[in-house]
Design a protein around this nucleic acid. Structure first.
Lengths: 207, 207
DNA sequence: CATTGTGAACGGGTTCACAGCA
DNA sequence: TGCTGTGAACCCGTTCACAATG
């Protein structure tokens, strides 16, 4: 096991491994190999072995990896063996859909507060949540100790709301707004932008 | 200008450049520099210059780049100076939100057909679209010549639906289902999976 | 004088290939 | 024999630094 810092690109592949292992586990499979995983997620077997070896020796020569053991290790490494509360900001169509999505549970996440600045929406119920006034984000997020947020506000509002979230103590933001956020060092941001990804693909299509 | 194949990683940055340039353009800005772009999207200036230089000499020493000209070039490179029709499959909460999203127009895309396999949803209207039976996908997509699809079906259905889409002639899929798709070479797939991205960030958080 | 375009240097991620072990 | 773990080789993307130029 290496004690050197883990390359971010390695970290970025771990959730995929975990996802695939969980699926195999649900299907009743008990062991796997780097080859088996490779065929399922399209990452080379050598790459997979090298990635795991960054964290320890998880496998057995000749037999491969124990799926439950590997899941446990990956969940611990990614810190999703505990539950992170999430603040969801922006309750338009997309925010609605996310608030109602059941897929976060058992993956280490739980939406715990939803915010919007539209008086017509504040106080309404979405699933189990009451939409709260985004003017109250700082005290509420601070009191709850929330560190992770999902941002589904219009592009024009995203930078400002993100700054407020950071002031409230959030350090990780999943940004659905089509803008690059400019935030202090140490704040993690990930982007979800379908247009960016569609345009990436059209480069390769013949018109 | 290089005539060698463009690295995919370069292509993946072009949509971000375009997005940022469009924003500057809307704000009335007429020229920019690699330095200016760098500060806005957090990619090094040298990187930006090198990326552009793969396609030609777009700038002028001393003055930088013309924003309208650069937009035009990037739109042509990404082939989004024309409109790609999109098939949207899976009309749950997320599919609904996407169908109603106005942001695709003027970015090279237009949702042209929406499908679901739930009899309760087939025939209902979502925005301007009538939900069609996914059993009819192949003839409809073929007739319309659709090449791009967005997949918002449950994980368990995604692989099968994706295969059907490929049989119908689709060659680019934006997959929102939390599974890796296994498709023939030549088919482009991009993934949108919030849990993967959240778990990437939690690695860096302190618990 | 500011800024581009680019060859060269650098750094680091991926693949290779094989020793080691169940 | 089958498969892991890993050093070394390889490859490729990024940064550097500067000549070129409007």
């Amino acid at each position: 096991m290496k004690l050197e810092p883990i390359p971010d690109i390695v970290v970025s592949r771990l959730p995929r491994y975990l996802q695939s292992l969980q699926r195999m586990h649900q299907a009743g499979q008990l062991t796997t190999s780097s080859q088996d995983l490779s065929s399922k997620i399209g990452i080379s077997a050598a790459q997979i072995r090298k990635d795991f070896s960054q964290f320890g020796e998880f496998g057995k020569q000749g037999t491969g990896y124990s799926i439950p053991f590997l899941i446990e290790q990956l969940e611990a490494i990614l810190k999703v063996n505990l539950v992170w509360e999430i603040a969801l900001v922006g309750i338009g169509d997309l925010g609605h859909a996310i608030a109602r999505y059941q897929g976060f549970t058992n993956q280490g996440f739980k939406i715990s507060a939803v915010f919007d600045n539209d008086p017509a929406r504040i106080g309404t119920k979405i699933g189990d949540f009451v939409v709260q006034d985004s003017a109250q984000m700082i005290p509420i997020i601070q009191r709850m100790g929330i560190k992770v947020a999902m941002l589904t506000v219009p592009a024009s509002a995203a930078q400002g709301v993100a700054e407020t979230l950071v002031n409230a103590g959030v350090t990780a933001i999943l940004n659905y707004a089509p803008v690059v956020l400019n935030l202090p060092p140490g704040i993690r941001v990930e982007y979800i932008d379908p247009i960016i990804q569609l345009q990436h693909m059209t480069f390769y299509l013949q018109s």
